[in-house]
Amino acid sequence: MRLGFLVDLSRCMGCMACAVSCKAENNVPLHSWRLRVKYIDQGEFPDTKRHFVPLRCNHCENAPCERICPVSALHYLPNGIVNVDHDRCIGCASCMMACPYNAIYLDPLTNSADKCTYCAHRIEVGMMPACVVACPTHANIFGDLDDPESEISKYLQEHRDVMVRKPELNTKPKHFYVRGSTVALDPLASERPEGYTLFTEVKFLDHIGGH
C-alpha cells in the first residue's frame, strides 16, 4: 500500500477548510503550518485571475528529510507515510533544511520538528485525513496509489496534466496536482509585480515564544 494525495486545482476555492481542520485534528500551534493554501493573483485588469494551491508535505518516496534525520525521528510507515516522532527528535532542524518544500516546521511548544502525517493516526482506524473529510468541493483526493481502483489512481489514469512540485529534485513526491497551471506550482513561472496578492502575506514578525 502506498498512500498518496491528489488535489484537483480546478475545484479548490481557497476556503481554507483544510488548513483549519488540520489544526484542529493535530493540535497544530499558532504560527505553525502543516497545510497552507496559497493565493496567487495573475494577470492585469480586466484579465485578472486567481489561483488557489493547497501545499502540504509530499511524503516523498525519496524523502530527503527521512534520509537526513540522524535519529530516525522521521521514518517511513509501511503504508508509505513519512511519520514524525517528537520523542526522538533532537531539534537539529536538518530536516527543515533538507526539505525543498518548506513542509517542516519546528513546533514552538515542544521544540521538535513536525509536519503533515497524512493523519496517520486516523489511517490506523480506517479514516480519511481530516483535510480530505473537510473539503467542500472535493478537491482533496486521497488513497492507495497501488490500488488501480482507488479514486486517486483513477484520477491519475484519466488526467494527462498531472504535476508535482519541483520534480527536478527527484524527491518522487506522492502528492499530485491536476487541472492547475504552472503559475500555481512553479514559483518561478511568474513575476511578482508591485501590487499585492490577496491574503498571502505571512509576515514573520518578532517571533514570540519557543526559541
Binding site: 534520509r67 530516525s72 521514518h75 517511513y76 510507515l77 509501511p78
Partner: peptide
C-alpha cells in the same frame, strides 16, 4: 544500499 537505519516494520 544507502546505509539507512531501518527502524520500521519492514
Amino acid at each position: 544500499d544507502e546505509g539507512h537505519i531501518n527502524p520500521t516494520i519492514t
